[in-house]
Write a protein that binds this DNA or RNA. Sequence first.
DNA 1: TCGGTACATCGCGATTTCGCGATATCTCGA
DNA 2: TCGAGATATCGCGAAATCGCGATGTACCGA
Lengths: 105, 105
Amino acid sequence: MAATTPDQSDELLGLFKALSNPNRLRILGWLKQPDEHFPPSGPGAPGVCLKHIQAKAGVSQSTASQFMATLQRAGLVRSHRVGQWTHWERDEAKIAALRDQLGAL
Amino acid sequence: MAATTPDQSDELLGLFKALSNPNRLRILGWLKQPDEHFPPSGPGAPGVCLKHIQAKAGVSQSTASQFMATLQRAGLVRSHRVGQWTHWERDEAKIAALRDQLGAL
DNA sequence: TCGGTACATCGCGATTTCGCGATATCTCGA
DNA sequence: TCGAGATATCGCGAAATCGCGATGTACCGA
């Protein structure tokens, strides 16, 4: 396969596109310290549910969902379902990898 | 003054916007090794003139000029006139400063 | 002074992105 | 099984971006 393996330039381009929006950039920043920016999501349940992100960002539900999908495609966040909620958190491993590529700027 | 001092977030946002275009991203990469990607611009004359950038990128003259202006506003390149030519080069000092901010991603 | 070259700026149509409401899907509890 | 809440997806109009040709400006050599 490797047919879907993204070029390194494409990966960087996707990163830049994802972060060239003030709302998405803010959200990614908030997710660095979830408990400082969001209501508690309960212990043992890492990640922030979409409702809280939507409320803090002040956008509609569909827009918030789209934002997270965009950030996810860029490899910046990941999600996991917890019951009826989708918990979102930063994908620090991939972010670190992207940071390395940014060093070649 | 300081009325035009950009917020740190705005500075990052400008960086991301400037680089969320494949052509501009390529150009910035080429400028890392000018002599490997462009015809010689003559000794003692650092920087690459717009014509060479335009030719390599395969865009119109006006588009190439716009690209460089955008990269300059983001703090990634700087220009200086040499006779009738405008020589463009990376602003490594500002790029390094931006790289530091990227560490806080 | 004048013509030509290099570059910047000015509209403009085409494309993309933005953010929304409406709707579909999924999950849980009654 | 049914209803309600949470999320994802689907169009859609508004706004921004893209890249172009045309035009303006600066510089040089004849």
